[in-house]
């Protein structure tokens, strides 16, 4: 891995973490739609990054978010699952001709339809795990389903906006 790319990855890690815990923590629409945008960071890791480093990144990102949310372990468990499933999911969704090396699987690079099929199940998985573990021991079914569905939609819309505003299309394509 080149040092330039490592630098960009670390900057992204810190930015996503800080924005998540200081700004987005307070952004909860109608008490149901949460904005766990830090999942997008894991989704947009380069395609050729191996599973082991991406698991480690997810672990530390999850712990960092958990510290500030006072939900020790819950974010970590959900983001780890996303990071592990993502590797296989990327393989399944490989377009004809394969991925380019160090490609970022973003909407700008891969198109809206591909990004929808790629990200929505992973967002859903994360939110399902998070709210399921969080509500273990309570008997709230409807509110939990509402939180899962609305948060997934909200995060998906936010992730599109963020990509349009702050990400660049890969040069040369």
């Amino acid at each position: 891995m080149s040092s330039g790319r490592l630098f960009l990855l670390s900057i992204g890690f810190i930015l996503y973490l800080i924005i998540q815990v200081l700004l987005l923590k307070n952004l909860v629409l109608f008490g149901t739609a949460f904005c766990f945008l830090y999942v997008l960071y894991i989704l947009l890791l380069p395609v050729d990054l191996k599973t082991i480093p991406s698991l480690l990144i997810a672990f530390f990102l999850g712990i960092g978010v958990d510290l500030f949310y006072d939900t020790l372990g819950i974010h970590t468990a959900s983001i780890l699952a996303v990071s592990f499933v993502r590797a296989g999911w990327l393989k399944i969704l490989t377009p004809t001709g394969g991925y380019d090396d160090d490609l970022q699987p973003s909407m700008l690079n891969m198109g809206f339809g591909w990004f929808l099929t790629y990200s929505l199940p992973l967002f859903l998985l994360h939110h399902f795990l998070f709210f399921y573990i969080e509500n273990l021991g309570t008997n709230l079914y409807l509110p939990v389903v509402q939180k899962i569905v609305f948060s997934t939609i909200f995060v998906f819309i936010m992730s599109i906006i963020v990509q349009l505003l702050f990400y660049r299309r890969r040069r040369g394509i």
Binding site: K50, T51, I52, L55, L56, F59, G62, D66, L67, F68, Y69, D70, L72, G73, I74, T76, A77, L80, A81, F84, A87, I133
Partner: peptide, 30 residues
């Protein structure tokens, strides 16, 4: 990769369980 996943997931679950008591250490939270 799978073994690492299981290992880290086990740590996370251990954290969830051990944190879920009424009184506890305040080190691993805000």
């Amino acid at each position: 990769a799978f073994l690492l996943f299981i290992f880290l997931e086990a740590i996370a679950i251990w954290l969830i369980v051990s944190y879920n008591s009424q009184q506890g250490s305040a080190f691993f939270n805000s």
